[in-house]
Design a protein around this nucleic acid. Sequence first.
DNA 1: TATCATATTGGACAGAATGTCCAGAAATGC
DNA 2: GCATTTCTGGACATTCTGTCCAATATGATA
Lengths: 204, 204
Amino acid sequence: MKIDRSDDSGTIDRRVARTRAMLQDALIALIPERGYAALTVEDICEKANIGRSTFYTHYAGKDELRTATLEAHLRSLTQKRPSSSTEPGKRLFEFSLPMFEHAHAFRSLHHALLSSSGDTIHDQLRDRIRRAVRSELAGNMPAGIPLEFAVQFVSGAFLAVLAWWIAEGASLSVPQIDELFQRMAAEGIGFPDVDVVDAKPARR
Amino acid sequence: MKIDRSDDSGTIDRRVARTRAMLQDALIALIPERGYAALTVEDICEKANIGRSTFYTHYAGKDELRTATLEAHLRSLTQKRPSSSTEPGKRLFEFSLPMFEHAHAFRSLHHALLSSSGDTIHDQLRDRIRRAVRSELAGNMPAGIPLEFAVQFVSGAFLAVLAWWIAEGASLSVPQIDELFQRMAAEGIGFPDVDVVDAKPARR
DNA sequence: TATCATATTGGACAGAATGTCCAGAAATGC
DNA sequence: GCATTTCTGGACATTCTGTCCAATATGATA
């Protein structure tokens, strides 16, 4: 899979293209080794064989390089959407399969990008939520759904909902938001007009 | 609601308690203003009226203070679990309501803790996922579920699942993980033995 | 209250990393 | 080939970190 690195329309000089590619590749190579946070601009430049002063003529800092690099990778996802083999109507979401595929293809990169270093605020919260979910789910899972999968699914959904609810000023009341969450976790989206494969009858 | 700040059993000296409380309060006060990442140890000490050298006799660094502060707040959640008013059997998860309540009570803190600064790797990914989910969900939502709620729920679940799947070495194949995700998003957990209020018949 | 133990303080210090600047060297586009 | 642009490496000021110390202040205890 080719990565489209065209940042602006007028980036033609081979030297710029080469420099940016070297830096982005160096970043990608370095992240799995030592984690993003631990990297310094000098580390990246050394790996890329680029002068440190050159770095700053292209990116304002480490974060901007990361943004550009990630953007270049994700661009390929957004572009190719031929909605290939799956017949419409059978699937709820179209985005997930290409995303899973991309993540699998660039496994080590995604691993490095997504792996929580464990020392974030989110990580700390996430851990607690996960424990709570796991203890409630353990023991009685529907057949065919791995426990840990469900734990991740539910805790991820919960945290996202919680963050959104708080950020939006908590316009919904506590019982309201809780009921919504409970309902969605139990029933899912459940589009009226979508035939969900044939998993429904399996639920006895 | 009182916050339990007892870190170890033998922390009795009022000076220690006072210093740590000042530092934790300063952190909490500062995070909403400028965001956690932008804070320096000196900022926190200045706000708390604590000497910077004193800081290091209590915490190894900014992150340790954050961990302790968050831990102190979350402790109150784990402790009180009288599983109060709700009859058992009607709800899937017991953890969510207390958590929503705590988040609402400490709204500004949670807002500061959860609000993504927007400059994280996760944030960048999250944004893209959200857009994809939103565009697929918009227009045909079941009655009673706000679109944005569903967007947050699904995208949060997806990202958590994706991160877990990659971190675990992708033992499930791409079609397997995708089918699991699709099924869970569509149907939810759907415990066989749980009476989900009365929302099911509402799905025509 | 007197005394001891412990905590806090401010300042100094070295080290790491950032971001800026410049003049010379090298490569590119035309 | 020549003008233009980019790369380079070194120097520089700045910020933040983490450690150390002697002087001082405060809580614990009898």
